[in-house]
């Protein structure tokens, strides 16, 4: 069964075309990486899939349903972590999780489960304002996992993290993958992240899909890794662009 269908979607901001006629399909249980440099249109595409932005043209269906008609229903089955969300600094980790758990009618037991799952036991009484970057990302992931989402969207979850914190987060996601009940859509510009976590990789630049497929199908003698493949496709490296993501 297809979890997500994106058909010929366009999105522009003033005179910038962020997404240009993009189509894709994601199956249940797949871990998919949207790989591309800053400004490629990854965040815009994911936010449209999350129902936070409306496409100018085209259609997006989640489990065959549109956001326009089934928003309440779809909000219950997705989990997400946005780029740069700051949780209220004067609330503890547990209070923040309790707040978000209440939106799904979940109890303390589930809050405790995600605290353990994301390794935040020692920080559950800490104010979120005192957390490190890695701990904040784990909290964002914990919030996203509260409702046992069928579809999880993570927008650059490890950007700005040190290698150790990044590895911690990857381990949590790998454990989630082993569970086999969640479909993950992850945006990143780190090729190692896409390679180590995802079954299906979609390479995006300038709002268009350049290539997609399983890692082993994408690589060949000329492109031995994703960075080389990206250079082959665009003539530039993944971290070439300095402007912010749209």
């Amino acid at each position: 069964m297809l979890q997500i269908e994106v058909s010929n979607v366009h999105k522009s901001f003033k005179d910038v075309q962020a997404v240009r006629g993009l189509s894709l399909a994601i199956r249940a249980g797949e871990f998919v990486a949207l790989l591309g440099p800053n400004g490629a249109g990854k965040t815009t595409l994911v936010e449209m899939m999350e129902g936070l932005r409306k496409p100018d043209k085209g259609e997006i269906r989640i489990q065959g349903k549109t956001w326009q008609k089934h928003e309440n229903e779809l909000r219950k089955i997705i989990g997400l972590s946005l780029q740069e969300t700051r949780f209220p600094e004067k609330l503890t980790v547990r209070e923040t999780l309790r707040l978000f758990a209440s939106f799904f009618g979940l109890d303390e037991e589930r809050v405790q489960e995600v605290i353990e799952w994301t390794g935040l036991e020692s920080k559950h009484k800490s104010m979120t304002g005192t957390l490190s970057g890695g701990q904040r990302q784990r909290l964002a992931l914990a919030v996203a996992l509260l409702n046992r989402p069928q579809i999880l969207f993570l927008d650059e979850p490890t950007t700005g993290l040190d290698p150790h914190s990044r590895l911690d987060l990857w381990n949590i996601l790998k454990a989630l993958k082993d569970g086999g009940e969640t479909t993950l859509i992850l945006t990143t510009h780190y090729m190692e992240e896409a390679e180590s976590l995802c079954d299906h990789i979609i390479i995006i630049d300038e709002g268009k899909i350049l290539q997609e497929g399983r890692l082993e199908d994408l690589l060949n003698e000329k492109a031995r890794n994703l960075d080389e493949l990206f250079i082959q496709l665009t003539g530039k490296t993944l971290n070439d662009h300095s402007e912010g993501e749209k």
Binding site: G51, L52, T85, R86, F103
Partner: peptide, 13 residues
């Protein structure tokens, strides 16, 4: 500005 409103309305709140 902290994108917290956006995060909250992305739930069934």
């Amino acid at each position: 500005s902290q994108k917290l409103l956006r995060r909250m309305v992305a739930t069934p709140m």
